[in-house]
């Protein structure tokens, strides 16, 4: 409930280190208190996505299923591209499919997160909506949709033999949580920056395209596949996005050993610091910019 605790004086905000850290540490409890607001926003977002369509709530499942069919057809029948040590193109297409699904969700979180405060300005201005919830809603809904897409991939992939079932798939909730952390951290920072400086939103699509090309979404970071990549490997491996895609592939593609990815435990563990770091950093950026945002939007 949006009741202010009794007898709290609302005073000019401070952006000093202590008060920012205090606000950052209170974020989980503030979000918990606003859970009704969050669920309502989430339900509205999910309904708004499919409002007016014929398939309605089936779309989140239909989309990944269609993608799976397209990728499967394209890479096993039309293009004969194979991963090293593979007999057919199924591994390569699974590698691409999972990479595309995870990346497009992350890019969506970044894009929608960046515009979330500007789009929700009426809520903030007229209804005093807590600003940290606005980027959280699209990040959460996008991560949930990615999760449902992953379930479709697991089920259909297993049934068709395209991606044989593997116990690693049980780690899906864990990788979703880590994905949400990274995506939300990104969304919080971008939302704050874009609300203060619209130029951020203009440069973002370019930045995301460059990041996508620099991240192993459509290529494999291995000298076997791309000769001459060695000097760049340390940079590729330092990127949080590489770790994110590795984690998703470890969970979903474990049934195809030819798909290059680290062992499940290692992949998830290496993503944890990135995910937590992004969350804290994103919340700090938003807390620092909050007084400015509340004056400007």
């Amino acid at each position: 409930m949006a009741t202010t605790p009794d007898l709290t004086w609302i005073q000019p905000p401070s952006t000093g280190l202590c008060s920012v850290l205090r606000r950052v540490s209170r974020a989980p409890s503030r979000i918990w208190h606003a859970r009704d607001l969050l669920f309502t926003g989430l339900a509205r977002d999910l309904r708004g996505r499919v409002a007016g369509t014929v398939l309605g709530p089936l779309w989140p499942f239909a989309q990944p299923a269609m993608l799976l069919v397209v990728y499967g057809f394209l890479f096993t029948t039309l293009l004969s591209m194979k991963l090293p040590g593979a007999s057919d193109g199924a591994g390569w297409s699974a590698y691409l499919l999972v990479g595309t699904l995870a990346w497009s969700s992350l890019a969506e979180c970044a894009t929608r997160g960046a515009s979330s405060l500007l789009e929700g300005r009426e809520l903030v201005r007229k209804l005093a909506y807590p600003i940290e919830l606005l980027p959280l809603v699209p990040s959460l809904s996008s991560t949930l949709l990615l999760g449902s897409g992953a379930v479709v991939v697991i089920v259909l992939g297993g049934l068709s033999g395209y991606l044989p079932w593997n116990l690693a798939a049980l780690a899906l909730p864990v990788v979703m949580l880590l994905h949400l952390g990274l995506a939300l951290g990104l969304a919080w920072s971008l939302a704050g920056l874009n609300a203060g400086l619209r130029d951020v939103g203009q440069i973002l699509p370019l930045l995301l395209t460059a990041l996508m090309l620099a991240t192993p979404v459509f290529w494999v970071a291995s000298p076997e596949v791309i000769p001459g990549i060695e000097p760049w490997l340390p940079y590729v491996e330092a990127s949080p996005f590489t770790h994110l895609l590795d984690a998703w592939r470890s969970v979903l593609c474990a049934g195809r050993p030819e798909v290059p990815c680290p062992p499940l435990g290692e992949a998830l563990a290496s993503l944890v610091p990135y995910s937590l770091g992004a969350l804290v950093l994103g919340r700090i950026v938003l807390a620092r910019l909050e007084p400015l945002i509340l004056d400007e939007i």
Binding site: L7, Q11, E122, R125
Partner: peptide, 30 residues
């Protein structure tokens, strides 16, 4: 509570419903 004060202080007890604009927050497709 939509924007913080720059000086001074204020406090509000209980639940506040602000109707700064009717229908703020409505979604046209719902």
């Amino acid at each position: 509570g939509a924007t913080p004060p720059t000086e001074g202080a204020l406090r509000v007890k209980g639940r506040v419903a602000a109707m700064l604009e009717l229908g703020a927050g409505f979604h046209p497709d719902l």
